[in-house]
């Protein structure tokens, strides 16, 4: 009897509670929009946050509820916008394809090093004790804190300098916040694009001493440009995208060859998301509730 009573009572309690939950779920059933689930399936599912929402589920919910044509998934681009618009019965705005560029040109051979750094392999750790690993305090540190952040395998370190793999970059902009030097920048994709791959604001003579690839602010590109698209600010040239016609004259005259041409394939492509662990990164704690990020009920 001493064994039977607790077993019976516990079973009875479990049964009653189970019944209560069943009744409650029947009585308080709420219909959810199946369209939201469809839209979630269509989105890339990287939860990168480029759209301004914490994840794809939140974006889908807002999109379905508001039918706002200006809500764009920058990762999916025009094709996805078209498909989403078709399903929701609205014409979505054009998505401008974006891509990352590197505003630094100083690799191992061209830029002098400040020290033989053997500490924690992280750009931010370096910045705590030094201006940079290299003598240039403005360029890429080259330890790849941004590489980890990229969900699309679009960044890698080559010769101590960050390189963007254009065909993988979707322009989500997650890497930008991970760079202590701000050498990564989002720009609109064009078939041909010129940009100044340097962010040094030192005077030309000083820049010249530590980096043979750095912009020295010589004004040759400004004089060469017939469209008034290039100007020099703080001893570093800047190209105005809206005025640039991609003639390439500035790149020809540049004595340090720091004006780079990138040619983008404008055709749409399939997006491959790098598989990471279950933690979405939305909160700091690894969550115990499975699929917390997917169910769209996140309160923050």
């Amino acid at each position: 009897m001493t064994i039977l009573t607790p077993i019976l009572i516990l079973s009875a309690l479990t049964f009653i509670l189970g019944l209560c939950i069943l009744l409650a779920s029947k009585k308080f059933h709420v219909k959810s929009d199946p369209l939201i689930d469809t839209v979630i399936l269509m989105l890339p599912g990287a939860n990168c946050g480029a759209c301004g929402y914490p994840g794809c589920a939140q974006f889908a919910e807002i999109l379905v509820k508001t039918r706002d044509t200006s809500k764009i998934c920058p990762v999916g681009g025009n094709d996805l916008s078209y498909e989403l618009g078709r399903i929701l019965g609205i014409k979505m705005d054009d998505a401008k394809p974006l891509s990352c560029i590197v505003l630094c040109n100083g690799n191992k051979t061209t830029t002098k090093f400040l020290a033989d750094y053997k500490g924690i392999h992280d750009c931010w750790a370096v910045k705590e004790i030094l201006p940079s690993v290299k003598q240039c305090a403005y360029g890429c540190v080259g330890l790849g804190s941004c590489v980890e952040a990229c969900k699309y395998d679009a960044l890698k370190i080559v010769d101590g300098l960050i390189k963007v793999i254009e065909e993988n970059c979707v322009g989500c902009g997650v890497c930008i916040g991970k760079c202590p030097q701000h050498v990564l920048k989002l720009t609109e994709k064009k078939v041909k694009k010129y940009h100044v791959a340097c962010s040094s604001v030192d005077k030309g003579a000083i820049t010249r001493k530590y980096c043979t690839n750095g912009c020295i602010g010589c004004m040759l590109c400004v004089k060469a440009c017939k469209f008034d698209a290039v100007k020099v600010e703080n001893f570093c040239a800047i190209i105005d995208d809206s005025k640039c016609v991609n003639c390439g004259l500035c790149a020809k005259v540049c004595p340090v060859k720091c004006i780079h041409l990138t040619e983008y394939a404008m055709a749409s492509k399939k997006i491959a998301v790098k598989k990471t662990d279950d933690n979405c990164g939305g909160c700091e704690m690894p969550c115990s509730v499975k699929g917390l990020g997917e169910d769209g009920t996140l309160g923050y």
Partner: peptide, 15 residues
Amino acid sequence: LVIASLVQIVEIALK
């Protein structure tokens, strides 16, 4: 047991 099911019921009802 009671707390877990109570939370579930409260959540369903609140929704």
